[in-house]
Write a protein that binds this DNA or RNA. Structure first.
Lengths: 254, 254
DNA sequence: CGTTGAATTGAGGTAGCTCAATAAGAGTGG
DNA sequence: CCACTCTTATTGAGCTACCTCAATTCAACG
């Protein structure tokens, strides 16, 4: 599960191999694939907190910070449909070719790495496993959205919030950004509320309840979960987050 | 927007060109593409109402009936995450290569057409536009799920139900299965409730309210919408349902 | 015409909402 | 280091949209 140590070339520490870790841990890539990925012409980009950005048809991987995907519509409180963490692919327009209906918004200052569609296409032609990995990220992304649907429509505020925290912990841990249930989260309670379909006030009370039960403790934006308890509250089953490989024949790799 | 008249070969009327209409109306296919599609070795399949099915890595297009995608977990009331209408691609496992976290369940007797991954791969190699079209369906599918999230978490029961009906009407009309706001819907109020995150009782009362306002009239499972009113109640903007082509260069067509 | 699944109606109950105020941090400038 | 400001977190107090439970009616079907 550890990120391979190669691939430090044309990018500074910040943008380091971290961005490949997510792709790597899907187990679809060989070391050579990651090596090849690292040789792409990656263009780093800094995104200021609160601003929106749009990778267009580029492959864009978040390197640091926290972003969300939200409806592109007019101003006002926009629903968020996904939380984008380091290592995640920001948008799949480069593969679907459809103009996105959502827009990305940075919640904190972010850094992202972009590679042009042309470069990605030619890399992928040589290394189909990379396309595989990207496509399975797309599938996971969709599964996360579906899980959000079930969360919002069937779970209570307490379960929902617990589930959200479990999911974050899982995704961050896989990127090496959480340990022992500890991680930091730069989202306000209001933002969490928008994502979970709860009012900010109720998020606050829900978090208090989680703290009272000892499932959660906070210091600033540093959270510590009692994983066992939190998961049992949430009914958290992380299957949907992992790229289970159907042991299928070949796909559009060729 | 009419389906081309070719492509009636190896399939009976029921499975006729209808299944390509959805792909066709995304405007990404040339007549030759549809022609080529129709020459695939399609295997028809009948699915009994209430049963579940899994296309595995096949390309599977619903030809008639009504199906839903739902969580694969244990028994009990499962959350539905998508409604699958004729012309829709049932599952995208064939492209993502990930084992699905959802399962398909037929609400009525259904017919579907399947083509094997191998066949699809070799067709797509010759005709990249077909992959294009399939991938943009995938994107629409995701957008629909995102819209469901915003519906459930920000819209009232009335708006949500209205939105649901508007979406169905839009999708059915594009397949030639709705006219003047009229179409038939074989979902019980309880099923609608599961999909929208509402109790069956409340769905009932909400539908009554829509009828009282004159936005809806029903006869059996035949619905007639006053589109104007319904859309204004719902705040329905169908952009997310249409495969807006980003005028991008080439993708993974090659 | 009895059975069965679905729609409808009635009657409470409550989870989560809104509004509004207060406290607590985190900068920022002096 | 303090005063000021702005954002975020917290608390209190009602309120309501939606839920649950339990009948009852309706419709289809053998």
């Amino acid at each position: 599960m550890t990120a391979p140590a190669y691939a430090r070339h044309s990018m500074d520490e910040d943008f380091g191999p971290l961005i490949f870790r997510r792709l790597w841990c899907g187990r679809k890539l060989k070391p050579e694939d990651v090596e090849a990925l690292s040789h792409l012409h990656w263009v780093p980009q800094s995104i200021a907190a609160k601003s929106t950005f749009n990778p267009g048809t580029n492959l864009c991987i978040l390197a640091s910070g926290l972003a969300v995907r939200q409806r592109a519509e007019g101003p006002g409180v926009r629903q968020m449909t996904a939380v984008v963490l380091p290592g995640d692919t920001c948008s799949y327009e480069f593969v679907t070719g459809s103009a996105p209906t959502t827009v990305l918004r940075a919640l904190t200052d972010c850094k992202a790495m972009q590679a042009s569609l042309e470069d990605v296409v030619s890399l992928v032609e040589q290394r189909p496993a990379i396309l595989q990995a990207l496509l399975s990220h797309l599938a996971v992304d969709h599964a996360v959205t579906e899980e959000l649907v079930t969360s919002i429509s069937t779970r209570s505020a307490l379960e929902r919030t617990a589930h959200f925290l479990c999911e974050l912990e899982f995704r961050l841990r896989r990127m090496g950004l959480a340990n022992n249930g500890q991680f930091s989260l730069s989202m306000t309670q209001a933002e969490i509320g928008v994502y979970l379909g709860l009012s900010a006030v109720h998020v606050n009370r829900t978090l208090q309840e989680l703290r009272k039960r000892g499932a959660l403790s906070t210091r600033g934006n540093r959270l510590t979960l009692d994983l066992e308890q939190m998961r049992s509250i949430a009914g958290f089953v992380p299957d949907y987050l992992t790229e289970a490989t159907a042991d299928a024949p070949r796909r559009f790799d060729a």
